[in-house]
Each structure stands twice: as structure tokens, then as C-alpha cells.
Design a protein around this nucleic acid. Sequence first.
DNA 1: AGTTGATTTGTAATCGATTACATTTTTCTT
DNA 2: AAGAAAAATGTAATCGATTACAAATCAACT
Lengths: 329, 329
Amino acid sequence: MAQIKDVAKQAGVSVASVSRVLAGHAGVSEAIRQRVLEAVRTMDYRPDLAAKRLRSRRTDTIGLIVSDIRNPFFTEVSRAVEDMAYQNRMRVILCNADEDPEKEALYLDLMRDENVSGVILSPSLPTLARFRMSDYPFPVVLVDRCDRETNADAVVLDNVDSAYRLTTHLIEQGYQRIAFIYGTTSATGRQRHEGYVTAMATHGLETLTQAVPATVEAARAAAGELTRGRPLPEALVGSNGLILLGLIEALRAAQLQFPEQIALAGFDDLPWTRLVGPGITVIAQPTYDIGQAAIELLLQRIAHSSQSVRRVVLRGELRERESSRRRRG
Amino acid sequence: MAQIKDVAKQAGVSVASVSRVLAGHAGVSEAIRQRVLEAVRTMDYRPDLAAKRLRSRRTDTIGLIVSDIRNPFFTEVSRAVEDMAYQNRMRVILCNADEDPEKEALYLDLMRDENVSGVILSPSLPTLARFRMSDYPFPVVLVDRCDRETNADAVVLDNVDSAYRLTTHLIEQGYQRIAFIYGTTSATGRQRHEGYVTAMATHGLETLTQAVPATVEAARAAAGELTRGRPLPEALVGSNGLILLGLIEALRAAQLQFPEQIALAGFDDLPWTRLVGPGITVIAQPTYDIGQAAIELLLQRIAHSSQSVRRVVLRGELRERESSRRRRG
DNA sequence: AGTTGATTTGTAATCGATTACATTTTTCTT
DNA sequence: AAGAAAAATGTAATCGATTACAAATCAACT
């Protein structure tokens, strides 16, 4: 394997010149530039990244810590982050923390060991509550989850407002007994719950909620309970894609048709939401944009560590489908 | 930041001893071991990974190159790989090559630069055809795609057989004009096509196939064409999850009910396959197991570079649902 | 031509670990 | 108790780049 000194010898220059040419630094004559480039080409020289990283103290690597890559929301975010990262000659280290604060801490520690340039994190509730930018030797951008109080760069959906609009849509369609099933492990669920509550209150309606761990199974169980209660809710709303899936499974099990017997709506426009039943009304998140915005924010922060804290709030889009069709009678 | 020499000073030993203790090497007295460990603890010493990697020439990193992480099959495989990797104190670098041989080559080059311990790759057809283990300075395990001729460690589904069983199932249910829509960008689609053809031939039936790029859009278009033809096919089979999705969209657009007007079956048991319509018959792949097997194979190969080439073939499971219900008449 | 200042190039220190080899200490043998 | 063999420990070289600093070259202006 050729090293920088071999290239230097071949080109008849010093290693410093080779390094300068390759780093694109100014102050090197065109003649030397050409000779170095030629030598690099003929020898197929590849700088050793380990050496480079040791000496330069930069890794050009970013960490992405999500709860579970299998959640389609994070799949899409991760794809966006990876695309942008490679475009900027950076690497991505991906971790699944499973909403577990201990794993999150573990992986954040690992990021420190890796000396990453920055981290994109979707924190669980406990981690978010404790979060201080200054606790980490690298920039952190929060994604998907963020509190009003949190002082950190972040990219989130307008959760409260989206939930408000979704709930209001159902109310306008003539539904009143609207049940909201939401995940308790993340700030997202809480905020969407808040929007739901506000919308219901605005219209003088009573709320009906179930807080569950954000899993298909938990949502299915909760919805099962709700559908066994009397009077039956007129509509069910799930606070994210996994929960929505659980609701559908419960309706299947209870042999309830939607929207005829019970209306349905939720968050996350997944490939199947318009194919299940007559199509499901959802708030679509601009997932790819969220990922893109997150890494852009991170790259800016890496470049200018002292710039002011920014929060990017993206708007969810209401996609009306048959599952929330106007209530007859 | 504490370095190894600080720890050595604090513990009153040499840097070599510290290194030996931390590496878990034998031949160091219990007394020193304890003193070093104590010093490491009190100083919260973290070895610098860049330095470690430079000197030891090992990165404990593996590369995972898939076509697109948004394909649920690869999402699940990737999760398995990450889980196992972190359990073995290894990092994962994930790349999306979009079925593009050039991008695959690019990322494989990047893996060389990163000096990874090994790579898990799901190659496009051209890359697979050209694949030689000896072209790479690191072990490579193929996943999902592999030819009979390919001489490389690999983990794949029993594609031919699975497709044969799925097709035979439809035939046994009374279907004869069965159309097979398959992806041409990967070996997987071809092999499943082969199983379909064999099953049809065995029963003396004529084949009806459409080869498409493995995307939802292409599959939708192809299915649209098929459903406009007369006589209408009696059943549609998609060679993977994305294609299946495209087929369903096409049936929706053409307002064809399944299985009443046309039966449906495919590959990949995704969260929604039993929720769309009356449930869709599929071959379920043991995706997590596939990922797990791949990294196990890779770790073994890293440990024993000269062991004989292994191929792990996992069996797909036929999940019969209503979309392939027995044909009336 | 000589001096000054700017620009280009080269030499050698440095990043922070691992590890080959040398040295010291311990254990065992006779 | 002396000497040999084995085990433990330490010293210093090494991995392969970047970069601070020194040296050399070049240009411009008296």
C-alpha cells in the first residue's frame, strides 16, 4: 500500500506538499500540484483514514441515534441523513436505542469515543428532560422530539397544530365521541395529545384518551378495550404509524368496519394507508425533509459552533381519505 | 482529556502495562491489573480510537451496502446486523447503493479506505456477475442475492423453491392464468421467476410474465397493462414487497376486487399484508434471521479467513390468506 | 545589485495508542 | 545458594498522516 512519502518521492516533492495538494490548501504552485496529482493517480494512493483522523483530530463522522430504524418514520429520516452525509463526504454511524434512556446514554458515550463531528438524536422522554447541550463535546441536533423548554437545535413537526387540525377535521365530519390513543414514550405523543385536547375543548366535547407504550401490541390492546366499551367511540385516532396499525388490527379483530361503524385517523402516511380499507385519513409528515433539515442544521452548527440555537418546525399535511367520511345522521 | 500515559503515571506503571490490562492480554499481575483499572476508573480514561486504529491496523467496523434502507426487507436486515455488531463491539457503516453498480463500486472503495473488517453486500445483477472475493482486501458476505456460480459466503432465501410453492398453492386453489411480475435488477427476482416457471410447467400451464424495474411505479404500470388485457389474468403474483404494493395500487385503480375478480399473492410479509383487503397470501422471509446469519458468517470469516466458503439458505414460509382463496367454479 | 516582504517548499514534531524487544523480577532446579 | 528458565514489566519504535516552523525562492522597489 502506497503511503504519502512514496507519493512524495515519486513526485519529487516533500510530504508536506502532497498533503497540501490533497487537502486543497492554497499556496502551492501549479507545477507541483500537477506532479502530485499525477503521482497520486499512477500509484492509486489512498490516504490512511486512521492516521488522518489521529493527527487532524477530526473524523468527519456523524452519529444518528433513533429509537428503531424499523419505524418507517426513522427509516426515511435515516435515508435522508445518509444521502446528505455522503454528499458532504461524511460517514454515518446508526444506533437503535429502543426508547431506552440507558441505551441512549450508552450510544452517546460511544459517540464521544468515536470523536464524531456531531450527533442527530431522537431522545426518549427522560433523556429529553435531562438534555443539556453542554453535556456533550459535540453538537447535537434533536429530531422528531423537542420540548418548549429544551435549549437545542431541533427539527420537529408542528405536532400540536397537526393534531388540532386532524381532530377538528373529524369534528367537522360530524364525529363527537373521538378517542385518542397516543404513545407515552416520546414528547411527540404528548404534544399531539395536547392538540387533540385543545380541539375537543374548543368544540365543547369531552375527551377520551388512552396512553400506551408506542407499540402495535399496546395500541391493539387499548383499542380492544375501547371497542368493548359502550357507548362505542365514534372515531379512533392514533398518534403515530405503529399505533395506527394496532388500531386497525383491533378493529379487524372486533369485526368493526370503518368508517361505517367507527371512523379512523392517525399520523404518518405510510405506503399502505390508502390501501387499507377505503383508505385512511392521516397527517403526512415530510419525513425526508425532516432528516434533511436535521443534517443541514448539524453541518451548520459544526461549521459555526457559536451560532444561535435554531428550531425548524415543519408543517404536517392533512390527507383526507374515506376512513373519516362524513358521519351519516 | 486523559491519555494512556496519564493513567500509567497515576497507577505508577508503564504505558505498556496499561495497554495490556485494557486489551485483556495475559501475563500481567493481579496487583497491577487492579491499580490500572482503578486509575482508569477514577480518571474516566477512554482510549483514543483513532490512535488505536492507526497502530493496531484494525477498525472493528463493518460495512453494510444495501440497495435502499427504505425497502422493509433491508430495514429489518439492517436492524439485525446492527444489533449483532454492537453486541460484538463493532460499528456499522450503512450505505444505500440504489441498485446502481457504480455506486456499489464507489461504496466498496470507501470501505477499503475505511479499512473495514468486513462487508455485507446485497449486489445488483451486474456487480454479482463480476463478483470475485479476491478483488477485495476484506471479507464480503452476500445477502439476499447470490448466483449458483458465485463463489462467496452468502445468506439467501430458497427463492426458486419458495416461488414454486407459492405458485403451486395458487394452482391448487384452482387458478390457471397466473401472471408473474418480477424485478429484473436483482438475482432474487430471476430466481423467483424460475420457480414460478417450473411450477407452471409442471402443471402444463402457460406462463405470463412481466419483467420490471423493482419499483412500485413500474409494477403498477405493468399490472395496469395486464389488467387491461383480455382475457384477464386469474391471479397476479409479485416477486417482492415493493412490486406487490404496485400491484395492489393497480388493482385499486382498475377497481378490481381480490380475490373475487383476481387473486393476488407475493413475497414479503409486511405489517400491512394481512390488513389490505381480506389479507394477502405471501411468502414470509425470515428477515431478521437473514441479517443475523449474515453477520455471523462475516464474523466467522473475519476470525478464520481461510475457512471454506459457506452458503446459508433459509426457507420462506407460505402464509395463506384470503387473497388466494379457492376459485369458485 | 541589495534589501525587504511575500510566497512557496521542506524538515521534523506531533497526534495517542500498540507492541517488539530489552530488562528486571520471580520461580524452579539441582 | 547459584544458575537457568519463565514471567512480568518497562523502554522506545512504530503506525501514516497533518502541520508548525524553518528555509528557500521569488518579486518588487530603491
